[in-house]
Design a binder for these strands. Structure first.
Length: 297
DNA sequence: ATAGGCGCCTGCTGGC
DNA sequence: TGCCAGCAGGCGCCTA
């Protein structure tokens, strides 16, 4: 099950923008089932009549800015789907929120099988800003400040996998792209952050950005649940180097991919390209060219 | 202060 | 064939 991480959320946001921006919310319907971020009945009346000005992403969050300074913020959790649909389309099971839009008979629908996600309303921009400040959400993973990132690794004995998953350190990374970027960087996921040289830290930052941008170009990864804003699946799952490939040959060296458990998450890596010993870790950036990929299959 | 573990939640899978 | 334990994991909360 591919969980929505940064590339998937970015795809949803890009898909939704043209259909949602400039439209007015004319109705709000909530299911009776409780979401992890519970929907307040008071929010519906606050939303009706407001126009969605912009839709953008922050980490794994989707922010819809409305007129009057208020905002509607979504988190997809593990199985959330936020799509724009014709109001005539049948409502699929596990639809928890429906926002009727005008002009046109379109609906913004929030579907979430496991209900780990949800939405919340902020009546003014300061309230929204405060929410994100309190959550301590870290910077976006693109163009990470070199000194900030090196410091985050140097100061911790947590393993690299745990650091990447920590939304306070860097926003938007989940289990798939943590594993994929560690492979790209040739770094063993279990290595303590403090064991990394500044060069290794920089390599990991570059690999993270590379992998995320590549996944965005492929509209994210779909294993089961994830779909973009139009309900279409992503394609990046066919390009996983290590994630869910345990036992299969490494794309680069053919060694079987290993699976372990780190930071409470299944973790996939190549024991040869990502050696556990720090002395062997200073390797060249891993190739991701299609021929290497073909050779690995 | 920090890190690790647990529970929430449903659907799928593999073993019996 | 049918049942059920185990697993998947983002995130908030609790504990050591």
């Amino acid at each position: 099950m591919a969980v929505p991480e940064l590339p998937e959320v970015e795809t949803v946001v890009r898909d939704l923008r043209p259909g949602v921006q400039g439209r007015r919310i004319i109705s709000v319907t909530a299911s009776s089932q409780r979401l992890r971020n519970p929907w307040s009945a008071a929010w519906g009346p606050c939303l009706v009549g407001r126009i969605i000005r912009t839709v953008h992403r922050r980490g794994k969050w989707i922010l819809c800015e409305l007129n009057g300074g208020s905002s509607l913020v979504f988190h997809l959790g593990m199985t959330g789907q936020l799509t724009i649909r014709s109001a005539a389309e049948p409502v699929s099971p596990h639809t928890h929120l429906t926002f009727g839009l005008s002009p046109g008979s379109m609906e913004l629908r929030y579907v979430d099988i496991r209900r780990f996600g949800g939405a919340r309303f902020f009546s003014d921009s300061r309230e929204c800003e405060r929410f994100f400040e309190q959550s301590g959400l870290g910077p976006e993973p693109f163009n990470l400040d070199r000194h900030y990132w090196a410091g985050c690794l140097r100061r911790t004995d947590r393993c690299l996998k745990a650091v990447l998953l920590d939304q306070r350190v860097v926003a938007g990374v989940g289990n798939i792209y943590a594993d994929e970027s560690l492979f790209e960087a040739g770094l063993y996921p279990g290595r303590p952050g403090s064991s990394c040289t500044p060069e290794e830290a920089q390599r990991l930052a570059r690999s993270l950005a590379t992998v995320l941008k590549r996944a965005i170009r492929r509209r994210g990864a779909s294993i089961r649940n994830y779909v973009g804003g139009f309900g279409l699946r992503g394609k990046y799952q066919t390009e996983f180097r290590v994630y869910q490939r345990s036992g299969e040959p490494c794309w680069r060296c053919q060694a079987p991919i290993a699976a372990i458990r780190l930071a409470g998450r299944s973790t996939h890596y190549c024991p040869r390209c990502q050696p556990a010993g720090a002395a062997n870790a200073n390797r060249a950036l891993l190739s991701s060219n299609p021929r290497a990929r073909a050779a690995g299959r």
